[in-house]
Structure formats: structure tokens, C-alpha cells
Design a binder for these strands. Sequence first.
DNA 1: GTTCTAGAAC
DNA 2: GTTCTAGAAC
Length: 763
Amino acid sequence: MDKMEVDETSAPKEGNPALVILVGAPGSGKSTFCEEVARSSTRAWVRVCQDTIGNGKAGNKAQCLSTAIRALKDGKSVFIDRCNLNREQRSEFVKLGGEPQIDVHAVVLDLPAKLCISRSVKRTGHEGNLQGGKAAAVVNRMLQHKELPKLSEGFNRITFCQNESDVKNAINTYSTLGALDSLPHGCFGQKNPDSKIQVGIMKFLKKAEVPLVSASRESGIEDPTSQTPGKNNSCCTDKETLSSIPDDANLEKMEVEGQAVCSASSHANQVSMDNIPTLAFPSISTSDFQFDHEKAADIIVKKVAEFLNKIRNARLVLVDLSHKSKILSLVKAKVAEKNIDTQKFFTHVGDITYLYSKGGLQCNVIVNAANWRLKPGGGGVNAAIFNAAGPELESATKQKVKSLSPGNAAVVPLPSSSPLFTREGVTHVIHVLGPNMNPQRPNYLNNDYIKGCKILEDAYTSLFEGFASIVRNKPGKTEGKSENLERKSLELQVQSDSCSRNRFANTDRKSKRDADHGLEKSKKYKGTQDGFGLTFIDSRVAKVDTEHKRTERSTSKAWGSWTQALHQIAMHPEKHKGDLLEISEDVVVLDDMYPKARKHALVLARIEGLDCLADVRKEHLLLLNKMHDVGLKWAKKFLNENASLVFRLGYHSAPSMRQLHLHVISQDFESTHLKKHWNSFTTAFFRDSVDVMDEISSYGKATIKVDDKLLSMELRCHKCRSAHPNIPRLKSHISSCHSPFPAHLLQNGRLVRAPGETGNNVQ
DNA sequence: GTTCTAGAAC
DNA sequence: GTTCTAGAAC
């Protein structure tokens, strides 16, 4: 193993203070857990309990945080004894582990709700005053919103306990943790991490939460508490989880595949470095764009050195697929001549989309060698990253940027649903476009290396600055005691050399926004930026812009800029191909960008001038029929995937988005995006497609209910018609309402179900 | 204190 | 349409 690739000296020091964040509902036994461990442990444990922190009375999160900080400073290990049932509640505590020598653990007491409730109901004199009858409701409610912790949140170790024997084992594990010991990193004891995904598939995908137990074992760290699989430790009873540990056979296989596999000891090393924000990047332009390797290597080393001089709490990794990579060897050779910290910059051989799961390297941010359209496909890194990240990256990218000029970078936060996020812990992708020296590709620089080098330097500057903006705004685990200093120095440096289009303002809030937009060719600034050899992009943009203005003028209703998206798609579906479910002569079908239910698609009319239901006349009847049929077809397709759904097809009386569109929406309304829209889908404001067609054919016009009262009506369940005080309460009701749909919806085919599903088979 | 919403900005 | 957040409601 090359010394540069892994630094042997950074193995976790033994005996780190541990920050153990308990996760569990009231009655799950958090306090008991802490007390039992503290009683028999030789370590000094401090239990931070929100229920008692205010002089024996309930306190707040801030008090818990400051108590925890104090205890950790004193070298004590800390239990955070509060429910911590969702990521957000945990995040600030996880950040306390910013000091690399603190191990951040989660212990999840994921016991049956029944048990928690019965314990809560029975107990008296509970610290949090949660006991008796109201406990049941509270526990139930809390468990509805539980989010199990993931390593990607910043935990070094997570122990899941699903029954009392698991809890016993975990208590034992922590009780016997001496002052000088540390526990293996990774995920332990989760029986079925995601019940939606088959275990076999998880195995195949090499799940993100690869337990690192083998790593520390093999690296010779003696750990009295780490046990042989299945022996005494709940964490190791899960064979399926264990099987994803790269054992010898797996290692061999990965070598064959040409994947980088660090030795097991490197896993342990990486873990200790995981606290540092890490950027993994491929060499830009040296592959398909045929940029001279020697020159590129010089630029990489120069830019890396510049960046590392500015920012201390970050790490850069140059990644290539093959051990034979010429650019890696060149860069390694050049780095060796320079005074560059090999812990802060090293090379890695492997697939950039499997850095953590296959390479054990935790990288928060990865760089994509993108094309100017920011489209998936092509090949190489771009194809690999878009493939691995799933459609989430494509839509997140599209939302932020349309195109990229050479030398520029665009930071795209990765939605947490993306496999790259869940499996690899990648939070951002930075798209970057380098100079092209390949005559076969557009914008060929005709061997002009003066221009080429300048653009390549700009590309690295942009992408590193993009990374800096992420580090600065989302410090994550780096946010520790030195946070303020670090932030300030970073801010000053970035400000002092900020280029004209990239300004960071002083206030947190503003700078966050700026950073989001700073480095990229955002939609807003598109066409106004200077770029190299990019006239064709800009003229294309200009054309679109004038088109906007023209169409805006032609319509009577004043549509704002954000209302145009659907219209643009209807007029130029080919430009949005990747986002669309279907394109035909008359209609375009797409998933609603912000689905208000488990399935929510739109069927768009493609003719110009048909903006909303009010515009529909008899001559559009055929089109309406077509839209309905296509909507029905897609509803059926969705029903094939999930027969329990029920669909309703209809139009909003007064849509917010221009261009007539038919909603095909499942009636579960199970979506985080459903907020104030409830009444627009469940009152007469929503015009069923079948009714609209009838009205048009009978009267030549559709009934439109634009009364504001409809939208501001009380919130009533669409099935049982019960009223609810607010959206969250309504949502929790509809998630469990088994009433049949009201009679009028059952008529005339207003509801679309799977054959045989009558809706009467409720339990 | 926390949850939720309304209204402005985009 | 969403995002953001002040301040109302609980």
C-alpha cells in the first residue's frame, strides 16, 4: 500500500471519550440503560438527561448541549438521554464529536411500541412527567415519526436493540468498556435495515453501513469488548449484515473487478479521519478531453497546495479507477516533491461511486467530470456518478443549474434519498467542466494550452471553492470548539480572494444562499457570465429567454416566471427527456416534481394557449379524452406496482402552473410535500376528469370552482370527512383512516383502483 | 418551548 | 408552485 494513500499513524487512539446518543421512545429504557452502564463501568460517564437537566426539572436542548460539551471537555464519556428519534434532533449532538478523538455512538432502543407504552403508562414519578394515560398517545405519535440513525449522520458506531436481550447485551458491551478501550466502528444488530429492500439486494449493493468490526480486529487493535460474531453481542447476530464485511473472498473479488480495496487496517484509519470533510475528485479533462497529463498533474498539485494552505479542516482525494493510472502516478511524484500533508491530500484507486462501501473512504463530497448540459450518460465518471446517484441527482441538478461552461463548477446538494447519500454518505456532488482538447468533442481548444491551462486552473479553483463553501456552511462534524476560529479564517480567506462572481457575505444566512449560487452558472445568472468558447451556449440561452418573453406577452393572464416550467416542458419536451415518463404528439407525462402523494403524475397538454381549465372548449374534447386515457394508463401502471393505491384524476380549478395539466394522484396523500394543498385536491376545487369531459361535451365549458373559501376551508378527511385542526394532525389521521370513500367518489369512475380492490377489505 | 401557519419573496 | 420565517397558537 502506498504510504501516500493511507496514513498509518492516524489509527484511532484507544480510550477516546465516547458520546453515546440514546435513541428511543419514552419507556424504551434509555435512562435504565445509562444508569446500569454508569453503575458498573470503570469509565466516568455523565448522563445528560433533558427531563432533569433544569435543576431536576425538564430543560431544553441547549442545556443538554452545553452540559455535554463540558463533560466531554473534561474527558468524560457522555450519554445523551433524550428521545433523539429523528435525525434533526440528533444532529447537533452528533456535531459535538467534531473533535476527532471523540467517538460518537448511537444506541437505538427500538423496542416494540407496546412495551414502551405499557412501561410509560405504568410508571409513576417519571422524570419527564410522562406517565399514565397520555403516555400512550405520546409514544405512538413519536414513533410514527421515528427515523433510525445512519452512519452517514456522523456516527462512528450504531447499536440497534430490538428486544430486551439485545439491550442486555448492549449494556454489557458498554459496561465492560474500560477507560482505555474503544468499541469497533460500524452498524450492529440491525435485523433488517430497510424492510423495503431485500436483504439479498442489500448484500449485492454492499450496503453503506458496512460494519467495520473486521477492520479493527484485523488491524490488531485489541478490544476486550468486541466479540466473535453471534457469541454474546447483539451486534453480531445479524448474519446478513455481517456478510457485507469485506472478507477475504470479497477482497479478492474486488481486486478482480479493479476496485480499490484498502487493506483492512486502512478502514480503521479512515474512520478516525472521517471527521474531516473530504472531497474526492477525478482528474479533470485528462480522460476523454485528452488534456496533457503532465500539465494537468502540475495544475492539480498547484491547486491542491493552494487550497490546503487556505483550509485546514478539509481533505482532498484524487481518485482514479486503475492502479496503472498515469495521472495518479504523475501527481504522486509531484506531491512528493512538495511540502503537502499526505493526510490532507492523497490518491485513491477505486470507483468514485463506491468510495465508502468498497474503499472504506468516507467522502462527503464527490466531483463529477460533467458535460456542459449536465446530463447523465456519456461514459466515464459522469455516467457512473449519475447512474449511482439515481434520478435524484438529475433532478437536483436540473433544479439548480442548466448548463456549465468550461472552467466552472456547480455545487449540487444530494437528496438524502439518493443511493450515493445513503450508501456512501455523499452529501454533495460538484459538477465541473474542464477544457476540451479532443477534436472529436465540441468546443475543442485546438491545442491551445495557454487557454486550456487557464481553464483547467479555473475548473479546479471553482470546484475547490465549491467544496469550501460546503465545508463552511455545513461544517458537520468539524463544528467543534474551534469552529468559530476556523470559520472566520476561512471566511476571510475566501473573501479576500473571491472573484467577481463569487462573493460570500457576512451573515450566515446570506452567505449560505450565496454559497449555493456562487460558483455555478445558476439559472438566474445564465447568459450573463463570461466563459471561454461558450458563445453557443449563451446564444442558445438568449433564444430561450426571448421565447419566454414572447409567450408571456401572448397570454392574457399574467403568469410569473415560476409558473412557466410546465409550459416549457410541454413546448420542448425533448429538452427534458430524462425527467419525463412519456412524450407523445398530444401529451407529455411526468412525475410531479413535488408529489403530494405516494404517486403523483401529471399529464400535460402540448398545445400552445391552453393554460388552464378555463381555456378548455369543445374543440379540446378529443384532447381531454386523450389526456384522460393516458392518465388512466399510467394509473394502471402504478397499480400494477402497488395494487393498494387508489387514484383520482382531475384538474385544479385555478392551477398555479401554466399549461393545462391533469393530476393523476393516489389518494393516500402520503407525502412530505403535502402542506397547504389539501383542499386543492379534496374539495370541489379539484375537478374530476370524468366530470370535466361530461361538462365540456354537454355545455362546452367546464365548471370551475375558484371560490377562495374552498381552499381555506377547514381540513376534512377525504374519506370519513372528520375535521382536523392542522395539516400534521390531518396527515396522521389519514394515515390510519380506514373509512370508505364518500359515495359520490365511488360513482362514475372517479376513483381508479386495481381490479378486485373494492376498498371494502379494511381490517 | 415547540409546533404550525400565513404571507412575502422568488 | 416552493422556501423562508415571524409570530400566533398550543
